[in-house]
């Protein structure tokens, strides 16, 4: 014997909605059929009318023409792109004091802050390594920085062909 499906149901809509019982047998009435036919066609025409409404009034369209407007596209100030160091306005030196709070805050180990000793034997920022391939752009490092020394940059389209291109040295790059 062939295995029967548990509750094979027919196509259509339940009897309380106009003309069908779920025993697989469709019971049509002529009036119900005609009403259904007319209303069905009307619903399709109405939907098409909306489409033509947008076609003749394109002012309501809100989407951007993205790749074409790439040059003029400005992101919001809080946009979270990849990490960048904030530099001192005057000297161009980084505000970073190499305290390592961002390194601790990072959930993915994307940041390594390496220190060095300057001429006065003080600890200063030596290298700032940023592994963008591991970064989830969660903003926790920026929040943890009490000196405002790092920020999320505004750049987008950050894909790369090689993951080694995403191992960034934000400061102390060996020339």
């Amino acid at each position: 014997m062939k295995t029967q499906a548990k509750n094979i149901q027919g196509r259509g809509y339940p009897v309380e909605r106009g003309g069908f019982v779920p025993d697989g047998q469709v019971h049509w009435s002529l009036a119900g059929y005609l009403t259904h036919l007319v209303n069905g066609c009307l619903s399709l025409v109405k939907g098409m009318g909306l489409t033509f409404g947008y076609f003749s009034h394109p002012g309501r369209i809100i989407t951007q023409q993205y790749p074409e407007n790439r040059e003029t596209l400005v992101m919001f100030p809080r946009f979270r792109g990849r990490l960048a160091l904030v530099m001192d306005e005057a000297g161009g030196a980084p505000l970073c004091t190499a305290c390592g709070m961002c390194e601790k805050a990072c959930p993915n180990g994307s940041i390594s802050v390496l220190t060095r000793r300057d001429s006065g034997n003080r600890k200063v920022l030596g290298r700032y390594l940023y592994r963008f391939s591991q970064c989830t752009l969660c903003n926790l490092c920026v929040e943890s920085c009490v000196f405002g020394a790092i920020r999320m940059a505004q750049d987008f389209e950050l894909a790369a062909y090689d993951s080694s291109d995403l191992q960034l040295v934000l400061y102390g790059k060996e020339e």
Binding site: C41, S43, K46, G47
Partner: peptide
């Protein structure tokens, strides 16, 4: 109009 009242 587009979907809820659509017969399909």
């Amino acid at each position: 109009t587009l979907l809820t009242n659509n017969v399909i």
